[in-house]
């Protein structure tokens, strides 16, 4: 099915086709795009503009009415430990993107091999992804609990630690615990996407490289990675955006603690809007958040576009 159709030829083909500006083709294009655009406008763009407007007003969740305050909200947010918040958000986001990717990749490489039980494992490893996320958070809270958690129980019994460790009560261990829990929940989908990517690597190329005497590691970088980089880039990008956004695990597992060391933009926005009822400052946080994310993503896209020849 033309898996390896070279981009060049298809691009010319498409151009020719797209230039046929017959009326029915234009309306067909409109029809194709309309439903998606409509949904995005209603569910994302309108609420987004509405919230961004709030960033410049004093507005409460509790009562109607708003008064213009200019850049005051943004200044407040920047003055209030913004650096720490950004740092913590990046730690969480990078950790929960990197580890699922590494695990997903390792697993995809293994499960791309032929062996007895391969099909079973491909399915079984999906389970952590299919248990509802909020249950996953409670499960890990249960495991990490300082006073009756099974992790402490096991580590004490096999003699690695003498005293139970309060995992969720130390800055580093709480951050680590969050990354572990989120990684557990999301590595399977990384695995699936990367496994799919691996299927597109033509076996003959491996064969040829092997005959040329390339070892597995060199084969991975010279043969596999070029075919995989497209999908790997996409999953990393999406996972990064989602994790920047991620709320459930942090909310349940640490509640932003200890001492606010695991607060991220997502929990801060939630607290400001739903506990402080302050839509103005929440909007300002959202505005800064989006600005930052945009910069990161543009840099990433530029970088990855330069990397690929397409």
């Amino acid at each position: 099915m033309a898996l390896d159709a070279t981009p060049r030829t298809t691009v010319t083909g498409r151009r020719e086709y797209g230039k046929g500006k017959r009326f029915d083709e234009r309306s067909f294009l409109f029809f194709l795009l309309a439903p998606g655009i409509l949904l995005l406008l209603a569910v994302v763009v309108y609420p987004l503009i509405r919230s961004l407007v709030s960033a410049f007003f004093e507005e409460s969740l509790l009562y109607p009415g708003m008064s213009f305050v200019g850049f005051q909200n943004i200044a407040d947010v920047l003055a209030n430990d913004f650096g720490a918040l950004l740092n913590q958000t990046l730690i969480f986001t990078i950790g929960t993107t990197f580890f699922p990717f590494v695990i997903g990749m390792g697993l995809a490489l293994v499960l791309n091999e032929r062996f007895r039980g391969q099909r079973f494992f491909r399915g079984a490893f999906l389970i952590p992804w299919l248990i509802p996320g909020v249950v996953v958070s409670f499960l890990w809270m249960w495991i990490f609990d300082a006073n009756y958690g099974v992790l402490n129980g096991v580590l004490t019994q096999i003699g690695i630690i003498d005293e139970p460790i309060a995992w969720l009560f130390g800055v580093d261990s709480a951050r680590g615990a969050l990354i572990v829990a989120k990684t557990w929940n999301s590595f399977p989908w990384m695995m699936v996407m990367l496994l799919a990517g691996l299927q597109t690597v033509p076996g003959e190329l491996h064969e040829a490289a092997a005959i040329d005497g390339a070892g597995p590691i060199r084969r991975f970088f010279t043969v596999t990675w070029p075919h995989l980089s497209g999908i790997a880039g996409l999953v990393i990008l999406l996972e990064f955006i989602w994790n920047f956004q991620h709320f459930d695990t942090i909310f349940v597992l640490t509640g932003g603690g200890p001492a606010g060391s695991t607060r991220t933009f997502a929990t801060e926005v939630y607290d400001t809007a739903f506990k402080g009822y302050d839509l103005g400052h929440a909007g300002a946080l959202g505005l800064l958040w989006m600005g930052l994310l945009m910069i990161l993503v543009v840099v990433y896209v530029r970088f990855s576009e330069r990397g690929s020849k397409d």
Binding site: L48, F247, L285
Partner: peptide, 21 residues
Amino acid sequence: YFVLSSQMFPQALLLVTLYVV
């Protein structure tokens, strides 16, 4: 890119407006 970036905004905030809509 717009489609891709549509998830970059905090959903907790979208929720407040969406609720009203």
